[in-house]
């Protein structure tokens, strides 16, 4: 309890600072920045790692243990170009789209919250949003999420194709794919923080 309480002091101060001493329009800037750069891509990525990574691993895992992957190879198809590449490409393209949608919803709800709970006026929120807004921020966020998409799909493919025989093997691969996908997102996020900022 104490630790929870003590740990909350900085954030409470932080909020106090932003809602009190500093001009209110910083709220808009804060909402915009964090959502575009961090929360949007990372939270969306994690949610999709659960859905997309798991479904890829389950699908390819089932194909592996029922010998459909072997069958594909005996028909002269290459498993990398036929199974992995299209899935990684699709996720690389789709993650940013979903993330962009999440970003707009996030900023919108930030705005609703600000005007209702913080008594902020819409022009002030917008002013803040624009103040520290760089067009680049959105692009950084979207590029990050594209890399998350590639990583999540790749982990799903690799774990799926690695599945051991039996339904339990597929389940295990699916779980591993999700865990690895989330880990990859955190690592990539740190990487982008170093490279882009």
């Amino acid at each position: 309890m104490r630790r929870l309480g003590v740990d909350s002091v900085p954030i409470a101060l932080f909020i106090a600072v932003f809602t009190g001493a500093v001009p209110m329009y910083f709220v808009g800037a804060l909402v915009g920045k964090t959502i575009m750069m961090e929360l949007g891509p990372v939270l969306t990525g994690m949610a999709l790692a659960g859905r997309v990574g798991a479904s890829i691993a389950a699908e390819l895992g089932t194909m592996k243990v029922t010998e459909q992957v072997d069958a594909l190879e005996t028909l002269a198809y290459d498993r990398n170009s036929y199974l992995i590449v299209p899935r990684v490409l699709a996720a690389t393209l789709m993650f940013p789209v979903v993330t962009a949608f999440a970003m707009s919803v996030g900023v919108f709800s930030g705005w609703i919250t600000a005007i209702n709970l913080l008594d902020l006026s819409s022009p002030d929120f917008l002013k803040g949003l624009k103040l520290f807004y760089r067009f680049k921020d959105i692009w950084f966020g979207l590029i990050k999420s594209a890399s998350f998409g590639a990583a999540v799909a790749l982990m799903g493919c690799l774990r799926g194709l690695d599945a051991q025989a039996g339904a339990a093997g597929v389940g295990l691969s699916t779980t591993r794919a999700v865990v690895l996908g989330c880990e990859a997102i955190l690592v990539l996020d740190a990487f982008w923080a170093l490279v882009l900022l």
């Binding site: 029922t66 459909q68 072997d70 069958a71 005996t74 028909l75 002269a76």
Partner: peptide, 20 residues
């Protein structure tokens, strides 16, 4: 060469391994 080989060898899997 492997792709050409696969054109010459048909493989019938134990559980058919049809693509669902």
């Amino acid at each position: 060469e492997l792709a050409a080989l696969r054109g010459r060898i048909g493989y019938v899997f134990q559980f058919a391994a049809l693509f669902d």
